[in-house]
């Protein structure tokens, strides 16, 4: 008796958590999070494929052993740059598909990891010699390694602005009561708070 009560409580908690998660996702954001996640997965798969094809595994293995033995951790990032980039992107793409309510947070975290991967590999590639760092080749290398993270960062800012637009309701259309013209926003039931007109869900959707 007690056990079944606890089980039903657990089920209720899980349902409540799912309900909260679903409520926090806007359908518009949900739809374009899916679109962007698919792009991230394609990016990731191609990065991993590029690494798999181009890597010379014997040379790579000896380099990795050397880096671990001597403690040159940044050398590891240089060697594994493409695969780290690809796996991070694909993993975050899948995470966004599975948990769209954390869309923006996941995008920001992914941008940070991809950018850090680029900076560390650039540092290991160029080193901190001032003359080398200031050279055109070094700047070009840095920009090349930050190319995708710059795109993701801009996307994060645009997503943040889009979320504000959606939640503030500035540009997004809210349904309007067909009788009195009142805005039907933040309602718990399909009933106009101004004139009391009640709608079925189908009528409400077609407003």
């Amino acid at each position: 008796m007690n056990e079944s009560f606890e089980t039903s409580q657990e089920v209720k908690t899980v349902v409540a958590r799912k309900r909260t998660a679903c409520r926090s996702v806007d359908p518009i954001q949900f739809q374009y999070s899916r679109i962007l996640a698919s792009m991230l997965i394609v990016f990731g798969i191609l990065c991993v494929a590029k690494f798999t094809i181009s890597a010379d595994y014997r040379y790579l293995a000896s380099n990795i052993k050397n880096a671990i033995h001597r403690g040159f951790w940044e050398m590891l990032v240089v060697e594994l740059y493409d695969i780290v980039d690809g796996l991070t992107t694909a993993a975050f793409g899948i995470a966004i598909l599975r948990s769209p309510q954390y869309f923006l947070r996941l995008m920001v975290l992914m941008t940070f990891i991809v950018s850090a991967n680029g900076v560390i590999s650039w540092y290991a590639h160029v080193g901190w010699v001032p003359e080398v760092v200031a050279s055109a080749e070094s700047i070009s290398e840095f920009l090349w390694r930050q190319w995708d993270s710059a795109g993701y960062l801009t996307a994060c800012i645009a997503i943040l602005m889009s979320q504000r637009r959606i939640h503030d309701g500035g540009r997004i259309v809210f349904p309007v009561c067909s009788d009195c013209g009142g805005a039907l926003r933040d309602l718990n039931e399909p009933r106009c708070p101004e004139c009391g007109q009640v709608y079925t869900l189908d009528e409400f959707h077609a407003l």
């Binding site: 190319w147 800012i157 602005m161 889009s162």
Partner: peptide
């Protein structure tokens, strides 16, 4: 529209970086 407003700046940033 919202998708384009996310992708548009992203494209411009990628272009400038390229």
């Amino acid at each position: 529209t919202e998708m384009s407003r996310v992708l548009g700046p992203m494209f411009i940033a990628l272009g400038i970086m390229s």
